[in-house]
Simulated assay, not measured.
Amino acid sequence: MISTLSLKVLQRMHDRTVAGMVAEVAAKSVGDRTVRNWLSKSTTPDPVVLEQIRLQGLEILRENLKNKDWPGAERDAYVAGLDATPGFVSGMAFSLQSACDQYPATVHLAGQMDLLEQAVAIHRQAGDVRSAAQAVLDVEWLRDEHLAIPQDGISADEMRLQLREAVSWDGLDVPGRVLVLNLQFQLLATLDFEFCAAHFPGLEPTPVFASLLPRFNLRVRPGRKDLGSEDARYLPLPYSAAPGRDRLFACSL
């Protein structure tokens, strides 16, 4: 769930589907249709094939950096750093750098997001709602800000209570949406800060997100026909279906 939005951003950045990009890297192993089946969970990928794709991707990256005249030591460090990332979000964050350790806070946060998603996914696959909720509650680095949207009257205490009392996946729906939304915006804000610090060191940091962001109502469902004037101020979730998404990313990225 956490990586879904990052996948959409990646596709927008390259104007290609994830299946197409993976298939290009894995041309010697699988085709586009096979990758699409993996993503839709129609079939399960062979771990051996996944390892082959990983190695092929790293070799392609190494060759690209060599063609760009990267020194051998820097090239090896960059490839090793990317290979060490724990998941998709951190891998994507790492690849935004033009050198190792250019955006350390962004890569670190993305890695934490990957590990959280993986921990919850294990319990989701086992159908264990309580353990999935507890996995979120046990994360030490999550703060009240991750579980609250004050302007909409959604408090961290309310979300924690819902997590503690959830006995179905529907019971985790709103807390999950709040958490994922706040994590995505924290990731964008962290990247914005480190990018500007690296490329515009002479400018004074100024927060602009409050001026760019629409307000979200986590309780509004896409496709509702009975939205009143009060609801019209909000965009519905899930975020992937929200109007204006592309404009927001154009401003944020």
Rank of each mutant, 00 (worst) to 15 (best):
A84P: 09
E51F: 02
L50P: 04
S252K: 08
L183Y: 06
R215T: 15
H123C: 05
N37E: 07
I2R: 10
D192Q: 08
Q186L: 07
D128K: 10
W141S: 02
L7Y: 12
A148K: 00
H146T: 01
Q184D: 14
A77V: 02
R247A: 14
L7K: 15
S3C: 02
M92K: 03
A250I: 06
V208S: 11
E140T: 10
V178R: 08
G176I: 09
S95N: 14
E165C: 02
A189S: 10
G72R: 12
L187T: 07
L61C: 05
D138C: 05
D32T: 05
N67V: 10
R219E: 14
P175T: 09
Q151W: 06
G57E: 11
S168R: 03
S42I: 04
L191D: 01
P47E: 04
F195A: 14
N217R: 15
L147P: 01
D15K: 12
Q186W: 06
I53F: 08
V220E: 14
L227I: 08
F88T: 05
A148T: 01
F94I: 02
L235D: 09
D157T: 09
W38T: 03
G31L: 09
K68E: 14
P175F: 09
P205H: 15
V180L: 03
A23Y: 05
L96I: 01
A110F: 07
T43L: 06
Q162G: 00
G153K: 03
G202R: 15
L227N: 12
L253H: 14
G111Y: 05
G228Y: 10
A77W: 01
A133G: 01
R219L: 15
K68Y: 02
N217L: 04
L187F: 07
D157M: 01
V49M: 06
D226L: 11
V139N: 00
F94L: 05
S211R: 15
P71H: 08
L5S: 11
N37T: 05
D83F: 06
V30I: 15
F88N: 02
F249D: 14
F94Q: 02
S211D: 15
L5E: 14
Q134M: 01
V25Q: 09
Q162D: 10
A241G: 10
L235T: 08
R143A: 05
A27C: 07
D46I: 02
A121S: 09
E24A: 11
A166Y: 01
L212A: 11
C196W: 10
L235R: 13
M21N: 05
P45M: 06
D173V: 06
L61W: 01
R75S: 04
W38A: 08
W141E: 05
T34C: 02
A156C: 04
K66R: 06
Q56D: 14
Q186V: 08
D83K: 09
T4I: 13
L181S: 12
K8P: 00
T44D: 11
M13S: 13
I149C: 02
E158Y: 03
L183C: 05
V25F: 04
D128N: 15
P104R: 03
L115M: 09
L7S: 12
K8Y: 13
L58Y: 12
D46G: 02
M92R: 13
A189H: 07
